[in-house]
Design a binder for these strands. Structure first.
Lengths: 244, 244
DNA sequence: ACGCGAAGGCTTACACTGTAAGTCGGTATG
DNA sequence: CATACCGACTTACAGTGTAAGCCTTCGCGT
């Protein structure tokens, strides 16, 4: 047994890989390494080089550790990615403005700022679950109900709002420069007249993502308020459920 | 050179792979194979086994061809995936109802039906571009403008509508059974009281994705119409641009 | 003081991915 | 008839996630 191991080692050494002793031996007791450390490292890598660069080997390298060692702290890569998002979402600010509309608005804008440096999160959040994510949604639901929306309308409201409560809508231009370049490309095509209606609509409209996001959000919130204030009837009579 | 090749072949043959002559030789002139064929095959695979099963080798196998042969018709896998979506979108029905609201509504619902068997498309469409996709958007913009919305409001409208014009909102429950199972899991947690506000709001609300989609869509369309009819002023005075 | 069991690293190996580079047979064109 | 080229095939490679097993070191019960 033992001899076998030694043999293998010897073989490996002769196979050519020089400098076999990594400089990783740090101090004496090696690094403790925790799940959170891994997630922080992953976040850093994703911020710098994109989500595609988050790879077990890369993470190990970033932490001065072999890839497989990570599996003592996470069960698989999926958990890493999910964890990154959960960590981020758990740190979302949750400001309280006065009424429900102001609160939801404030939180969306705060989330927008919070997530801005982490473009990868946008792509992830769409299909994610996770406790902190659900807590966020729970808070929004609470606000809506406190604002006097019916259960049914609250349900609809969540659908309409979508991920906007996290501070973004799902357009093309996701923060990274790759997406940015593609938008430029499309704009050029528009100017060439391939999409006449878009070209017409774009005339004189000065584009500001932040402003546009706020417009859209306000339009939705106002729409919800109006739906609450009575004419919830007409569009809703087809619904099999009626509640207060 | 030539001898070298022969040598290599000899080596390979001795290496063990029996049955080297594939039965793929079809008829005599081999199959023509086109990009569209590849895309159709890819769509079929994705429909059956999910987008993750779409792999060059798998596609080749599906078409009775080696993986590398595909590269004579597409430049890389990215183009395959983009092509799948473009093909699907190019086949979207574009019904014309009377006014702009009815038309957009009808198209969204038609798209919903059209895309329903292709769950993978939902995930893709969010970050995609492509000519046919843009044409779809162009048509929506045209409808909005024809409906009397200002350029600025049209802009906002596109943000608010997002991918809803393709017949879906970006919730968790993407058609595939994997997502379905996760929703069940979350519902169980809700019932366990982890998310009290959601639990409260869910009482007595009977859930129907299609109905809910329509509610949300109508709420948005009505909101847009109201914004058009005048009070576009108050929420919009902050905008640097004013147009008719 | 000691032994030992587990924690947490490391190594190897494997199946699978996309794709670069080169080979080769047939068919259409000079 | 010769040739060029198209469209298939073959081989090879680097990079992915991760299963399985090995080795060292530390903390703790006896």
């Amino acid at each position: 047994m033992r001899t076998l191991a030694i043999q293998r080692k010897a073989v490996k050494r002769s196979t050519g890989t020089d400098a076999p002793r990594r400089a990783s031996r740090r101090g004496k007791g090696r690094a403790p390494l925790s799940k959170e450390q891994i997630l922080r490292a992953a976040t850093l890598v994703a911020d710098r080089d994109g989500l595609g660069a988050v790879t077990m080997r890369r993470l190990g390298q970033e932490l001065g550790v072999e890839a497989m060692s990570l599996y003592h702290h996470v069960t698989n890569k999926e958990e890493v990615v999910a964890g990154m998002l959960e960590l981020l979402v758990s740190e979302l600010p949750a400001p309280d403005a006065g009424d429900w509309k102001a609160t939801i608005r404030a939180r969306a804008l705060a989330a927008r700022e919070h997530l801005r440096p982490h473009a990868w999160a946008f792509r992830l959040i769409a299909n994610a679950e996770g406790v902190n994510l659900m807590k966020h949604h729970d808070a929004v639901v609470a606000s809506l109900r406190a604002g006097g929306l019916s259960r049914q309308l609250t349900h609809t409201a969540m659908h309409v709002l979508g991920n906007r409560t996290f501070g973004f809508s799902e357009d093309l231009f996701l923060g990274d420069d790759h997406g940015h370049r593609r938008v430029q490309e499309i704009l050029r095509e528009v100017r060439q007249g391939k999409y006449p209606a878009i070209a017409e609509a774009l005339q004189g409209v000065h584009h500001d993502d932040d402003l546009e996001f706020i417009f859209a959000l306000d339009l939705i919130l106002d729409g919800l308020e109006r739906a609450r204030d009575g004419e919830a009837r007409d569009a809703r009579t087809t619904s099999p459920v009626r509640d207060a």
